[in-house]
């Protein structure tokens, strides 16, 4: 070996000057972000967590009147005992997530594969498939769904075939078919992420595989899929987050209504939001465990060792 790999500075001198300098630089680069996130997210989230254990009245001298509750968990108990809609909506959301996630991921992977092949007007097609991303925002989307543009006429017949299914399965399925186009419209960013992964794959790999007698199908499973696997994880997380926090989500709407309701109001909505956030967190952990790379593979990537000064 001509050059020796630079030693990992963390191994021997845990707090040498170089390491300290990298720490300092790291935090310097992070500083504006830390400011923004701590003031408008972390602080706000902590406040909302505190509020969720109290009784908040909007109005009064300081803008808010906060009184302690006899049982601090009262709001959380109420969410499950008095709000009949919450567990039901949560269940149907989870079910539709399970149905939609594979559809979005496989659809965007297929489209990305098609868009990565050598065809005429490739640029134009790529543009068309990304376009929905820039219009798929709240008001326009609501207008489109209200007008029934979002459903494929054929799909209505499909749902009548499913009539034999139990109600709790039927609803999300009907929903799925009715909103199939909307679901596909949401796939723009995912397509883009897959494309970026596919473009890194060297053409010579496929040529070599072809010479060795691999069919297109085989090289998809043995070359393409392993390479885009990290992208699948990234896309799944992104999809879950957008579906869970998007404006058209039923639970978000429920939380919004509850928060602005005159009777129980704010603190109750806070408790609900925190429960919901925890549930999304659990879902994300499950997704992560499903698609994460095997740890022995990871070692290869971890080997870099330069210290940025």
């Amino acid at each position: 070996m001509a050059t020796k790999a630079p030693k990992n500075p963390h191994d021997k001198h845990p707090l040498s000057k170089r390491v300290l300098r990298e720490w300092l630089h790291g935090y310097l680069f992070l500083l504006p972000w830390i400011f923004g996130v701590s003031v408008f997210f972390v602080y706000a989230m902590v406040r909302s967590l505190i509020f969720s254990f109290t009784d908040v009245q909007i109005g009064g001298e300081a803008g808010l009147t906060i009184t302690a509750l006899a049982n601090p968990w009262q709001n959380y108990i109420d969410v499950f005992t008095t709000e009949v809609n919450f567990p039901i909506t949560l269940g149907s959301f989870a079910l539709s997530l399970v149905l939609q996630l594979p559809i979005i991921i496989s659809f965007s992977l297929i489209i990305a594969l098609l868009l990565n092949s050598k065809i005429k007007a490739r640029g134009l097609f790529r543009m068309i498939f990304f376009l929905p991303v820039i219009i798929a925002t709240g008001p326009v989307m609501n207008m489109l769904t209200a007008q029934g543009v979002a459903s494929v006429p054929m799909m209505a017949d499909m749902t009548s075939l499913l009539g034999a299914l139990p109600q709790f399965l039927l609803d999300p399925l009907t929903d799925l078919f009715n909103n199939l186009i909307v679901i596909l419209w949401n796939a723009g960013i995912q397509i883009l992420i897959f494309l970026s992964g596919l473009q890194k794959v060297s053409k010579t790999l496929y040529e070599a595989a072809k010479i060795d007698g691999a069919s297109g199908w085989e090289s998809f499973w043995k070359i393409t899929l392993p390479i885009v696997k990290p992208m699948i994880l990234l896309n799944s997380i992104y999809t879950v987050v957008t579906l869970a926090t998007g404006g058209t989500n039923e639970i978000i709407e429920l939380i919004y209504t509850v928060t602005n309701a005159p009777t129980k109001g704010y603190e109750y909505g806070m408790a609900m939001s925190w429960i919901y956030t925890l549930i999304i967190g659990v879902i994300l952990v499950i997704v992560f465990l499903l698609f994460k790379e095997k740890s022995d593979k990871k070692v290869v990537y971890e080997k870099r060792r330069v210290t940025l000064r």
């Binding site: 935090y27 996130v37 997210f41 989230m45 926090t245 978000i252 909505g269």
Partner: peptide, 27 residues
């Protein structure tokens, strides 16, 4: 870059990513 607390920062970002926007409006 490598420094202590890096992973925690990423976790905070992920938490902020999935938090319900309505809940942080009043704070």
């Amino acid at each position: 870059m490598r420094f202590r607390g890096k992973n925690m920062m990423m976790e905070i970002n992920n938490l902020a990513l999935m938090f319900v926007a309505t809940a942080v409006v009043i704070p």
